[in-house]
């Protein structure tokens, strides 16, 4: 039964992808991108990847759309119509698609338990996690402990991307002195009572839910990446409803920067501390006299670091795009 759902959703996914590429209005394309992301998340969920689906849910519908819209408001909304020579590209793309499809017949079928990917380290992760770390969510265990080095790298990629965005967008535009007016305060959702009241009502719940996802990540789907994105989305909602300035007063730039750097630093420091205590880098067993408890403590600490960095980075990126408009 589930496979029929999956086929259905995947077909919709293909249709949406083609529509995104064909849409000439970029605004429409961005909105279709939101649908695309929703479909991706539903697919991930059906394919048993609850954590990934939660990440896609937290990021795809909220943050991605907001960042794309921020960029669109600074550039053009419509694509220029040009006569393109599509023939060559089309034939290359079709040929490659057919080749890829031909290649898939060599692959193991969906759900085949004998597939090579299930023979390597995965059974070890599944059987050893209850003994070595004793938390139910194996994904969090692998992310936070077995492959912590990898995750550290990803956190630094987020950190670097945030710094890059800030470098690119904080410089003043030389050509553009006075042409952009400050946006009048009389527009937007700020002056609609109902969204404002409901938004104020929802904001604490979004942040609370983010914290739940952060600290429940060992027991259910969740973790630092998802929690950071959800809390950032909550603060973006606050910024949409109360205005940029209020949001920046609540979470100023210095705090955001401290979050971005501090989270990454916390992560690294956990690794350094374990080295000082006689273990390997990011080997949390030495943090406590009981190695299992040490592992759990280490995972909670680094997940906190991940959450803080992701939240700060996404917020800083959002504000960088939003502040650019006001020049």
């Amino acid at each position: 039964m589930i496979i029929i759902f999956a086929v259905f959703l995947l077909t919709l996914l293909v249709i949406t992808a083609i529509a995104i590429v064909r849409a000439e209005n970029l605004f429409v394309a961005v909105m279709l991108m939101a649908i695309f992301s929703l479909l991706m998340a539903a697919n991930f969920f059906i394919l048993d990847a609850a954590d990934v689906a939660l990440t896609e849910a937290a990021i795809g519908a909220g943050v991605t759309t907001v960042i794309f819209l921020g960029a669109l408001s600074l550039t053009a909304e419509n694509e220029k119509k040009v006569e393109l020579s599509r023939g060559v590209a089309m034939s290359i793309v079709t040929a490659t698609t057919l080749l890829l499809i031909y290649a898939t017949f060599e692959k193991p079928k969906l759900g085949d338990p004998e597939a090579p990917v299930h023979q390597h380290v995965a059974p070890w992760y599944l059987s050893e996690t209850p003994k070595l770390i004793d938390i139910p969510n194996v994904v969090t265990a692998v992310l936070g402990s077995f492959r912590a080095y990898d995750t550290l790298g990803e956190v630094f990629v987020v950190f670097t991307a945030c710094i890059g965005v800030l470098f690119l967008l904080s410089a003043k535009n030389p050509a553009d002195k006075q042409s952009r007016r400050t946006p009048p305060e009389s527009i937007g959702l700020r002056h609609h009572l109902i969204p404002k009241v409901v938004g104020r009502l929802l904001f604490p719940f979004i942040v609370l839910f983010g914290l739940y996802v952060q600290f429940h990540g060992e027991y259910g789907p969740g973790g630092g990446f998802q929690a950071g994105a959800i809390i950032a989305t909550g603060i973006i909602l606050f910024a949409l409803l109360e205005g940029e300035k209020t949001a920046l007063a609540a979470v100023p730039h210095s705090v955001m920067m401290a979050m971005v750097a501090g989270g990454a630093l916390l992560y690294t420091m956990v690794g350094v501390v374990t080295m000082f205590m006689g273990g390997n880098f990011l080997d949390y067993s030495v943090l406590s006299s009981n190695p299992v408890f040490g592992q759990q403590m280490g995972i909670i600490l680094i997940e906190a670091g991940v959450g803080i960095t992701v939240c700060g980075a996404l917020l800083a990126i959002f504000h960088a795009f939003a502040a650019r408009e006001n020049y």
Partner: peptide
Amino acid sequence: FLDLALAYALINFVGILAVLEFFQSQRN
């Protein structure tokens, strides 16, 4: 796993409000 649905219920709203806000300011 209802966490996922909960996350969507909250975040979809933010997305829609962002779209409307963007569109109104663009119109303006």
